[in-house]
Simulated scan of single mutants.
Amino acid sequence: MTRPRMIATDLDGTLLRNDKTLSPRTLRALRTATASGAEVVFVTARPPRFVDRLSAATGLAGTAVCSNGALVYDLAARTVTASRALPVDVARKVVAALSAVVPDVGFAVETGRNVLYEPAYGLRLPEDAGAESPVACLADLWTADVPIAKLLAWSARLDADLLLAAAEQAAGTEAQFTHSGGRGLLEISAPGVTKAGTLAELCAGRGIPAEEVVAFGDMPNDLTILTWAGTGYAMGNAHPAVLASVRRRTGTNEEDGVAAVLEQLFGPA
């Protein structure tokens, strides 16, 4: 392919190594690409606070599509420039439908700034230490008067693929369901909100067609960008559903798979 004008990349399991760091090789490749005129956009399930830490550690700036497309974030200004929240009434319908088929499921709300969780939600992420706040009961999630970037559902019993299948059967028309590989963790957005939908709007505003975008990802929530972009690469460590749907492959995140492709497109760093 010719040199792309935009590089759209997932973070966990894709651009970042398993220890959540960016390797020197990958950082050099990104800087070479941007010096050649390409724009790098992080397209991630992560909230803005996570990309803030990445930006501080690497010096990378630009734009991030966060929370699976619910938020567009300017890293330099540390400002959300666009958002599509999940309506509270829709969130309540999804909770009722999913609870009826997965009795042990617990719920949390990602606001983009922090996570509010009810007692049945037992998942704790080390990187969210200091950003997680408990509420006394499930009903209190809806009285917090905060925008819902994502509704999170967690089960200690079901893995993410089984939980996704259960949710789509119970409430598939109510919201957008996906997962990014978290243990027993389902991510729920407003209807129609996907990584690709938000990225497409961003590209339209910049006059960049899909054919001039190269995308990288590893999980089911990345499938929309990998199939929308003119060129999509599945990581060598990708989820089976991604490997089955995306023709192009690169190395694993531990092998600097993104850097390997960028070095071919833009020359060695």
Rank of each mutant, 00 (worst) to 15 (best):
N221F: 12
V101Q: 11
H179G: 02
P119R: 07
H179T: 08
A160P: 10
L16G: 02
A244E: 13
R46A: 14
T198F: 10
P126R: 11
T21S: 15
A259L: 01
A165M: 07
G232R: 01
D161Y: 06
P119K: 06
V213F: 10
A234G: 01
G230S: 05
G184T: 09
A129K: 11
V258A: 02
F266L: 04
F50P: 00
T194V: 06
P4K: 01
A269D: 10
T250M: 05
A82T: 11
P87G: 09
A29I: 00
K20Y: 12
L71K: 01
A170K: 05
T198K: 11
L138H: 11
G232F: 06
P47D: 09
A175M: 05
Y121L: 12
F50K: 00
K150Y: 03
L16D: 07
G182S: 13
P119Y: 08
G236K: 01
A82K: 11
G37P: 09
V115H: 10
C66M: 07
D12S: 03
R92L: 10
K20E: 14
D218G: 14
F107N: 03
G69C: 10
E127Y: 14
A82M: 09
G205W: 10
T198S: 10
I148M: 15
A56S: 11
D52A: 08
G217Y: 07
G69Y: 06
L202D: 01
A56D: 15
N68E: 12
R3C: 07
A234N: 02
K150T: 14
I148Y: 11
A238K: 03
Y121Q: 11
S67Q: 14
A108E: 09
R25W: 03
A33R: 02
E118I: 06
A167T: 03
R3W: 00
C137E: 15
S23P: 02
S245Y: 00
G205Y: 09
V40S: 01
D128E: 15
L11S: 10
L86S: 04
T178Q: 06
L22Q: 01
A77C: 06
S36M: 02
R124D: 08
E263I: 00
E255K: 08
A269E: 11
F266K: 05
T143W: 07
T58L: 05
K93P: 00
C137R: 15
L16W: 04
I188P: 02
D140A: 15
L152G: 06
L116N: 00
R3P: 05
R92F: 00
